[in-house]
Design a protein around this nucleic acid. Structure first.
Lengths: 142, 142
DNA sequence: AAAAACCCTGTAGCAGCTACAAGGTCAAAC
DNA sequence: GTTTGACCTTGTAGCTGCTACAGGGTTTTT
């Protein structure tokens, strides 16, 4: 299987495959006489594994770590679990931050009365007042 | 006011101030005889405005657009509101994606029974099975 | 007068790709 | 038999929003 076929089967860009190889997430495959990369099914499996981890938003460094752990069968499963739970906590923290943001943006949008000109725009006023460090609906002093 | 003082007052890095100038978010200030940037209070106000927008996670391109809109007083407030609401939708979409992720990671972590070796690790198994395209707890076929 | 603290420009790095340039290779159509 | 087109190769630069460093000059303090 050449790189285009592998990429198609995994649903990724050809460049991404080469990038993963450079980054040590994919083993360098054998080459044909003319220098083309020749992949086997195990490469597709690995690539799918990486993509699944990416779909869970894991950074490449963590996927690399996961691959290391899975190579060494003496390693305890707890290390894998810790990695996943640490990642989960990061995702939770980010989600909560976005939730707070949503509230602020909604409050901001509510400031705007339709049809006004920007000179009277509640949003811009609010943003500028906030910039002065004054209390505002989206950044309550409390 | 020189750049260090401005940066301190706004709570940003000196490099960030220069970066914002390059990116057109901050007007280039006057220079002293020796070439130092000399800022006035209006620069601080603008910088605080930009930082507040950034704290709402707006991309620099949108802040630039907001600044353009606020310069032209004939512009309708609706355009500002549309920008904010579009941004809000992006934030909401991202938050929902993270929420789904959380569920998947929790399911994944639950696969792991403490004390096992990676050879028997439910997490890795799940990730590999998922990579085969099979149904799994974190990527339900339904 | 020397040392510390500030300023300048230009450049490179981070993540995770994506895209382009400038070439080599291979299959099939004409 | 050659030409078209799709594929492959490497190397490099771009995206976002900074941050850091190198290699200088200036200003302030000691």
């Amino acid at each position: 299987m050449r790189i285009g076929e592998l990429a198609r089967q995994a649903g990724v860009d050809v460049q991404t495959v080469r990038y993963y190889e450079r980054e040590g997430l994919l083993d360098a495959p054998a080459r044909t006489a003319s220098g083309y990369r020749a992949y086997g099914p195990q490469h597709l499996e690995r690539l799918n594994f990486v993509r699944h981890c990416r779909s869970l938003d894991m950074p490449l460094a963590e996927i690399r770590r996961l691959l290391e752990l899975s190579r060494d069968t003496r390693v305890s499963c707890d290390q894998v679990n810790t990695l996943v739970r640490t990642h989960l906590e990061r995702v939770q923290a980010k989600r909560k931050a976005l939730q707070a943001l949503e509230g602020q943006l909604e409050a901001l949008s509510a400031q705007c009365e339709s049809g006004h000109r920007v000179a009277d725009c509640g949003i811009l006023e609010e943003l500028i007042h906030a910039a002065h460090g004054e209390a505002c609906a989206c950044h309550p002093a409390a």
